[in-house]
Design a binder for these strands. Sequence first.
DNA 1: GTAACTGCAAAATATTTGCATCCTT
DNA 2: AAGGATGCAAATATTTTGCAGTTAC
Lengths: 139, 139
Amino acid sequence: MLESASEILKANNMSVTASRQQILSLFFDKDRGALRHSDIEKQLDNLDRVTIYRTLQVFSDKGLIHPISGSDGVTRYALCKGNCSEGHHHDNHVHFYCHKCSQTQCLNEVQIPKVELPGIFTVRNIEMLIHGVCQHCKN
Amino acid sequence: MLESASEILKANNMSVTASRQQILSLFFDKDRGALRHSDIEKQLDNLDRVTIYRTLQVFSDKGLIHPISGSDGVTRYALCKGNCSEGHHHDNHVHFYCHKCSQTQCLNEVQIPKVELPGIFTVRNIEMLIHGVCQHCKN
DNA sequence: GTAACTGCAAAATATTTGCATCCTT
DNA sequence: AAGGATGCAAATATTTTGCAGTTAC
């Protein structure tokens, strides 16, 4: 477990608990793909299912992680890259889902392009998910 | 029920059944938003849940409707606009989710813009979902 | 000590599968 | 008549809620 997990929790006004440290550390360990609830449950089988759901919710509310909704109906979460804050995400990057390894990753360097919408719509947030084969599975 | 429902089914090599006609007609009636399984279940309460799931799957396979996966975890479906065929969707338009009325609609006239991905990825499909307030709820 | 966090039980919702029966062609 | 479509039962998966007990600060 990272030493810094507790620092990060403190810095974001969350009480430091074992569950939170373990879950947050997982996100730092795992640099490849976004994590599903079930991934976390498998790796931290000492934690209750419900605790994991609630922790993911809190982390998301605090701007530590952001949810990614894929076409397989399972919500994944990935670390926010610094510019998110409590109650407001700024993750305007593209997400990539690989249908070979079923991993979802953030393409942090790829910005979501602007779209022209008729003025009758008010835009709050844009999600862009690209499906295909990732760098690891392409071979 | 549209007379044309049975025509469309025939034209796409599907046997013409009461369930399929009713479900397909719903999609033609409903011009505003995409339909969830539960919407259909409510409106056609003579049909079995499972039949609705299977019918949506078949329609999607045949290119009549396309699935839209939103961040609320519920799959919605909307009519394809003519250029889709069996086994291959071409719905490269933007989808819009209104968080006031919870409706999802296709913005058929708004194309998904091109994105530059590093060559290490193979792209198969792109989804773009915009959240905000729709034309009906804006007031 | 108090408020927040966790675990357990249970419920709600979404979706899938197997099988026997019915309907379309 | 044959094969596909449907209905029913049941299983699986995901997520939420309530409450009582525990822990962080």
